[in-house]
Simulated scan of single mutants.
Amino acid sequence: MTTWSTPRRVVLSLGSNLGERMQNLQGAVDALFDASGLRLVGLSPVYETAPVGGPEQEAFLNAVVVVDTALDPDTVLERAQNVEDAFHRVREVRWGPRSLDVDIIDAGGEQRDDPALTLPHPQAHTRAFVLQPWSDVDPDAEIPGKGPVRDLLAALTGQELHRRDDLVLQVPD
């Protein structure tokens, strides 16, 4: 496990459209914090969203988790993929249905173009299901090279997004 010399802010996007969607999201939050290394900064409201791209499929539940961590992005990615695997994530169809998706959206402002992990997430600036919950947690957030999250969100049109106040993720103890 490698670490940064000082903690940095990392933004994770969670999504699920198979099975017990809310249980999958809550399980992801619980599992992400089951091991040390991530300190919760904020947990967004849950949104129900229409799928973007890919085959026809059911609506997603989405949320954003903001953490501070000294873990490097590759270690956070490994943890995120382990959480997805625990929820039987299958990668058969690009942008297809999934029990759980955990994406690193931003990692301390780092920019990299790597096949294993591109930072910031290459489509985040075009996805309301990332931008709206992220803005809820951090209204002053910015995507490196793209601009303020609230401005990017304001420029998007045509993406269905419904805040689900009846569904609340619990912060881990």
Score class of each variant (00 low, 15 high):
101 D>Q: 08
84 E>M: 12
151 D>K: 14
119 L>Y: 08
71 L>G: 03
135 S>P: 01
82 N>M: 12
83 V>W: 04
78 E>V: 12
96 G>P: 03
106 D>E: 15
158 G>C: 13
125 H>W: 12
149 V>T: 09
133 P>I: 09
153 L>S: 09
104 I>Y: 09
145 G>P: 11
123 Q>R: 15
146 K>N: 08
162 H>E: 11
135 S>E: 02
142 E>T: 14
152 L>Q: 02
114 D>F: 12
118 T>A: 10
99 S>V: 06
93 V>H: 11
69 T>R: 10
98 R>F: 09
65 V>K: 11
165 D>S: 13
106 D>G: 09
82 N>S: 14
157 T>C: 04
84 E>K: 14
103 D>Q: 06
121 H>E: 10
145 G>M: 10
110 E>I: 15
128 A>M: 09
147 G>L: 02
89 R>G: 04
100 L>K: 12
111 Q>S: 13
110 E>L: 15
60 F>T: 00
143 I>P: 00
153 L>Q: 01
138 D>M: 15
72 D>T: 14
121 H>F: 08
98 R>K: 13
92 E>Y: 03
63 A>F: 05
102 V>N: 07
98 R>D: 06
150 R>Q: 08
102 V>A: 04
113 D>K: 04
75 T>Q: 13
151 D>F: 05
59 A>D: 12
152 L>W: 00
88 H>T: 08
166 D>T: 04
123 Q>I: 00
158 G>K: 13
98 R>P: 10
71 L>Q: 15
69 T>D: 08
145 G>A: 11
147 G>C: 02
109 G>N: 02
90 V>G: 03
111 Q>E: 15
97 P>L: 01
145 G>I: 10
102 V>M: 05
68 D>P: 05
166 D>N: 09
122 P>I: 01
84 E>F: 11
110 E>K: 13
64 V>A: 02
92 E>T: 13
151 D>I: 00
164 R>V: 06
88 H>M: 08
115 P>E: 11
103 D>M: 13
64 V>T: 06
59 A>F: 09
123 Q>F: 03
127 R>N: 00
134 W>L: 12
61 L>S: 01
166 D>V: 05
87 F>C: 02
116 A>Q: 14
128 A>L: 05
151 D>T: 10
76 V>D: 05
122 P>S: 04
70 A>E: 14
116 A>T: 13
130 V>Q: 00
158 G>I: 07
163 R>Y: 02
62 N>H: 10
136 D>R: 01
90 V>F: 03
124 A>K: 07
94 R>G: 05
66 V>H: 05
102 V>W: 06
108 G>L: 09
82 N>E: 13
69 T>M: 04
166 D>G: 05
122 P>K: 09
62 N>T: 03
69 T>L: 01
115 P>C: 10
118 T>Y: 05
112 R>M: 06
162 H>P: 03
98 R>N: 11
156 L>A: 07
67 V>S: 04
85 D>T: 14
87 F>Y: 15
145 G>E: 10
